[in-house]
Each structure stands twice: as structure tokens, then as C-alpha cells.
Simulated scan of single mutants.
Amino acid sequence: MEKMSDFKFVIIGSGNISRTYTTVLNKLEGMELVGMVSRSGERPDHINSSVEMGQSIREIENDFDAVILATPNGMHNKGAIEAANLGKHVLTEKPLDITREAMDKMIEACDANNVKLAVAYQRRTNPDNKIIYNLIREGKLGNIFAADMTVKNYRPDSYYESGAWRGTRDIDGGGPFMQQASHNVDLYGWFFGMPSKIISSYGTFTHDIEVEDHGAAILKHGDDMIGTIIASTSAKPGFDGKLEIHSDKGTVVLENDIITSWQIEGMENPSQSAPEEIHSGATSASVSDTSGHENIVKDFVQAIKQDRSPLIDGKSARLATELILEIYENKIS
């Protein structure tokens, strides 16, 4: 039986992450992939023959409602602006982009053309992350004085060799802070806001790339909270991301977006996470659990139909890149 759809997508980019979105659109009711843009023009093996291929969005003849940007980081702005100027809504992979100027132009183009702009920071949809966000906003965790985040991934040389843009400043925009830890940095900013002062140190230790493969930052907030973020692709064999929050009421530890330690006085552990594995990215960029992406895509389509802001719009997602750029710009000598 042919799948019925009332919302049609074109994916721009044919690499690994496009496979994830193809799977998502095949799963979700009422949604259909009708086109894909690939710079090579070649049809990837995960795209069936009914999907129209083109080397430019303007070559796609099928009617469609929105694009999904699955291109490398520094190319998001080009796809977003072109789609917005055609009156198409835009969902982009993280990060929004890698420079302030590019992000601003994306947001301005979507606003000027009255189309939605959403960003796939899907970790915000995970149950325990939403619980912690609300508890912080309600002041129920007490006076938070420290937040320590570690994103100690490992990537072999073959990962960086798999694409000419990987590990480059102009396209990737940086190493693990901008790439692998971007989701985690987004959570940090979502929970605690933008710090007032940052100092950092980072370098390239185990890979032949232009950007860092390991680094650390100390972040000072206006309420005197001290944060730390460590990001790496050199930490063999790769470890699940962790966030430790310390307050005058006790400690909360999240590992891979699940509350694994709850030591808050007078409160029961509120964890609602299911026991199944959530993709951590510790050792691989491949995504097997697409539930987070499904949440983002469903919200994006609902936001368009209801004429409301998406869960993570351009302005909200901009904070993560801004924080990462501040980390890069405030390196100690």
C-alpha cells in the first residue's frame, strides 16, 4: 500500500546523516521524501528510485514544503538562504552554522520570507534532560555552584579521512567543540545560559587535522556558577557524555542524557528515561536510534501547520555556536 503524505521534503546533502533523515521520513505518517540534492548528482544507496535527484535545489521539479539540511556545518547557511528565498521551510542539522555572520543571515532570510527555521538539537527532547531543565527553571535544585560536562569521544584517523571537509576550519568550523560536542554544548547553554566569562585551552594531539582534537574550557556565570566543558575525539576508546551538577542541595549526574545519580535532599529521583540505549556518539557518528530526530521532525511540521516557533528555532540554537566561538576565541597562551 502506497504511503499517503501531506508534507513533502527535499534533503540537501547525501552523506551519512541524510540516511538518518531518510529513515525518519519513511517512519513518520504523513511525510514523504520527494527529492535529494547531491553535489555529485549520484544517487546514494539509501535513496529509492522514486526520489528525484538534483545537484541544486532549483533542479528539483517535484513540489515540496521544506528542506532538511544534511550538508557539512559551514554549508548550512547557503542551503537555508536558498530554500528560504524559494519560500521553503528549513530544518537544519546541528550546529546552526559556524560563524555569527552566517547564522544571522540564515535567521534574517527565513524571517524575511516568513518561513520556519528549526535546528536538530534533539537531545533537548530526551525525558531526563527536559526534567532537569524544568527543575533548574523552577529553582528546585537549589543554588547551583558547579556544572561539569565531559564529552570524551574517540574518532580514528579514518573518520577524518572519510571526507575532505572533516577537521577543517572553513567547513567543519572546528574540532570536537563545534562538531561532536555541539549537542552537549547546546544542552549546557539551554540549562545555564551564556556565561559571562570563558577561558580555554585546546590543541591537536593525535590526529593530522587543522583543528583541535582535545580541549577544556572554564566558564564563569553571572550568578558565580563555575562550569567546565571538556571535548575530545582523542579519548580512547570513547566514553559516554556526562554532566555533573552540584548545588547546595546535592548532586545530579546525567550520563548519555539519563540521570544515573540523584543525591538531591528531599526529592525522589524523577528520572523518566526508558532503559533502551540512546546514541551517545562516543565511538561513532552513525545513528541507530532515530527517536530524537523523529521528535524534531514531527515538531517542525506541527510548528509549520500551527504557525508557531519550532522547539529549537534559529535564535535558540544560535547560543550553542556563540558559546563554542567564545571558547575558541578565549584560548589562554
Rank of each mutant, 00 (worst) to 15 (best):
G167E: 07
N143W: 11
N134V: 00
N143K: 15
H183G: 10
G174F: 00
N134G: 07
D172S: 15
P156D: 14
Q122S: 11
N129F: 10
W190V: 11
T125P: 00
M178K: 00
I171C: 11
S182N: 13
G189A: 11
V151L: 05
D148E: 15
A181D: 00
E161D: 15
N153A: 15
Q179C: 14
I131G: 01
S158P: 04
K140N: 13
N134W: 01
L135F: 08
S162W: 09
N184G: 10
I132T: 01
Y160A: 08
D172V: 03
A146Q: 14
N143P: 05
N126L: 11
N129K: 10
N129M: 13
P176C: 09
R123F: 08
Y159R: 12
N129Q: 11
N153L: 01
Y159W: 15
F191M: 02
M149W: 12
A118T: 01
N129S: 13
Q179P: 00
L187Q: 05
K130E: 11
R166P: 10
V151S: 09
W165C: 08
I144Y: 04
G139I: 09
G189N: 09
G174L: 08
R169E: 12
M149N: 07
H183P: 02
M149S: 08
N153Q: 13
S182A: 14
Q122W: 11
I131W: 05
N129I: 13
W190T: 13
T150G: 05
N134A: 10
I144P: 02
A120D: 09
V151E: 05
K152E: 12
Y188I: 04
Y159H: 15
R155I: 03
I144V: 14
P127K: 10
S162L: 04
F145R: 07
I131V: 10
F191R: 02
R166D: 08
N153I: 05
E161V: 05
L187M: 14
Y188Q: 08
W165N: 12
V151D: 04
R124I: 14
V151Q: 06
N126A: 07
Y188M: 13
S158T: 14
S182F: 07
M194K: 09
S162T: 09
F177W: 00
S182L: 07
D172C: 09
L135V: 04
Q179K: 09
D157F: 03
A146T: 15
T150C: 08
Y154E: 08
G139H: 04
V119Q: 02
A181L: 07
S158V: 06
H183R: 03
D128S: 08
F145A: 04
F177G: 02
R137F: 04
N153Y: 12
Q122N: 10
S162A: 13
I171N: 13
D186W: 03
P156K: 10
Y121C: 02
A181S: 15
F177P: 00
W190F: 14
M194W: 03
R124Q: 13
M149Y: 12
Y133E: 09
L187S: 01
P176L: 03
M149V: 14
G174Y: 00
A181W: 04
M194A: 07
G173K: 06
P156W: 08
D172P: 06
